[in-house]
Simulated scan of single mutants.
Amino acid sequence: MQTLRRAWEHLEEGMIAFLLAAMTLVTFTYVALNNIYTLFYALSDRWAPTSDFFGAIGDHLMGYAQGMTWSVALTKALFGWLIFFGIAYGVRTAGHLGVDVLVRKTSRPVQRLLSLLACACCLAYAGLFLVASCKWVAALLAAGIGAEDLDRYGIKVGYITLIVPVGFALVIARYLEIFYRLFTGRQTGLGLADEAAEATKLANPGEEPR
């Protein structure tokens, strides 16, 4: 079970890293092409003997830049995927905004009860969006609407929006894990970040937690 969970976490982190890298690479390439061809045009104007050579390079680079009209649409799609992968990752790492200042002032049993209630609300919220997003994506796939500037490559809007139900399913899986840990008394608050303290305690059984 631990091996499967670690594989899931590595896959989640790998997808986030891949999406960030892909967004950066696409944007950098597009910006670079739109600025480099002007350099070759400037060189073409400066030296007459090599004017045709540098001019031809500039023409090719400008053609590539003009052909990358899909880059903005692809970056938007990648960003959308990053958001929904990031939601589940934020739940795991407790990377969300902390709103439990008052809750932490109560006793541990009360904290656990309030956390169970909050977790149930999060599960209900994510469940509603999962059902709604599944119907939405199914309608988009049935309509077969092409994605802006990406339809030439056979990419449909429905393909891009598939991440919405997938993202909410990942969120539900995370909150189910948190609910189980709350129910069994292994933690008192939302998030899974406190597992680091438990891992340290297991690795050093004689050492008191800080």
Rank of each mutant, 00 (worst) to 15 (best):
F79Q: 14
M15K: 09
M62T: 03
G80I: 12
F40L: 14
A65I: 02
G63D: 06
G189T: 13
Q2E: 10
L11E: 09
L97D: 00
T106P: 00
T106I: 00
F129V: 09
E148G: 06
L130F: 15
F28D: 10
Y125C: 12
S107W: 02
L150G: 05
K201L: 09
T24L: 14
L141M: 13
K76A: 13
L162C: 13
L19W: 01
A32L: 14
L192Y: 03
G14E: 06
L25W: 08
M23H: 05
M62Y: 06
E148N: 14
V166E: 05
E207A: 15
L97E: 05
V110R: 14
R108P: 01
T24E: 06
N34L: 06
C134T: 13
Q66P: 00
A56L: 12
G127A: 04
V31A: 14
D59Q: 12
A17N: 04
I155W: 08
P109C: 05
I172V: 13
A56C: 00
A21E: 07
T24F: 14
L170K: 05
A48S: 13
Y64T: 00
T27A: 15
V31Q: 06
Q187S: 10
L162D: 01
P109V: 04
L202M: 07
L182H: 07
I178F: 11
A143I: 05
K135Q: 10
